[in-house]
Amino acid sequence: MCSRNIKISVVLFLVLIPIFTALPHNHNLSKRSNFFDLECKGIFNKTMFFRLDRICEDCYQLFRETSIHRLCKKDCFDSKWFGECVKVLLTPSEEITNLQHFIKVVNGSPISFNMAPVT
């Protein structure tokens, strides 16, 4: 009887391991690795990085073009494409000021493009 329970336990263990490993990984760790994948040289701030990333996600949702998603994140959000996404999403000017600060923090350098709102 004990041998049967051990066999059942081993089978369950072998079945459940792949299921647990297939579950989504920690979202925070994923975002942090994305920070390094984009070659960001500043400080990883989860809130700031998530907000910048959200601009690119929203822009992608609007156009459904994967190249826009990739170009928006180019150079750690310091590309003309990010600025264009900010404009297209009709981001308020006070939010643009925050985004510029966020880019400085996560990118580690001054912003090289203009994110002026559309008038």
Rank of each mutant, 00 (worst) to 15 (best):
L12Q: 06
T21L: 15
S109F: 07
S33E: 14
N34A: 15
T47N: 14
P18E: 14
F102Y: 15
K80Q: 13
K7S: 02
F50D: 15
K73T: 06
I68V: 14
I19Q: 05
F63K: 12
N107D: 08
A22R: 13
F102M: 13
F102D: 12
C76W: 10
L89W: 06
F50R: 13
Y60D: 08
T97S: 12
V118Y: 06
I96Y: 02
N34P: 03
I68A: 03
R51C: 05
F50P: 01
S93K: 12
P117Q: 01
N28P: 01
Q100F: 02
F50W: 07
I43S: 06
S109D: 07
V106T: 07
E94H: 03
F77P: 07
F50V: 13
S112P: 07
N107K: 14
M1I: 00
I111W: 02
E65I: 09
N26Q: 10
I6L: 15
E57D: 13
R51P: 02
S79V: 10
R4L: 15
C72N: 05
K46G: 01
R32M: 13
S3A: 14
T21C: 06
S3L: 14
E65Y: 04
L38Q: 06
L38I: 03
F82L: 02
K87P: 01
F102H: 09
V11Q: 00
T47K: 09
T119N: 10
P110F: 04
N98I: 05
K80S: 13
V118F: 07
N107M: 08
T91P: 03
I111L: 15
G108L: 09
H101R: 08
S3M: 11
Q61L: 13
F49T: 03
F49R: 14
A22M: 09
K87R: 14
T91R: 03
M48A: 12
K73C: 02
S109Y: 05
S112M: 11
E65K: 06
H101W: 00
I17K: 05
C85F: 03
E39R: 08
N26P: 00
A116R: 01
T97Q: 11
K87Y: 02
L14E: 10
E65A: 10
T21W: 10
L29Q: 14
M115I: 06
R64T: 05
K7T: 01
K41Y: 01
L38W: 03
K104N: 06
S9M: 13
E65V: 04
S33K: 11
E94M: 11
M1L: 15
N5C: 15
D58G: 02
G108M: 11
H25L: 07
M115S: 12
F20V: 09
C72T: 07
S79I: 05
V118W: 08
S67F: 05
N98K: 13
F36V: 09
D53V: 02
V11F: 10
F44T: 09
C40K: 06
W81S: 11
V86E: 02
M115R: 05
C76R: 10
K41M: 06
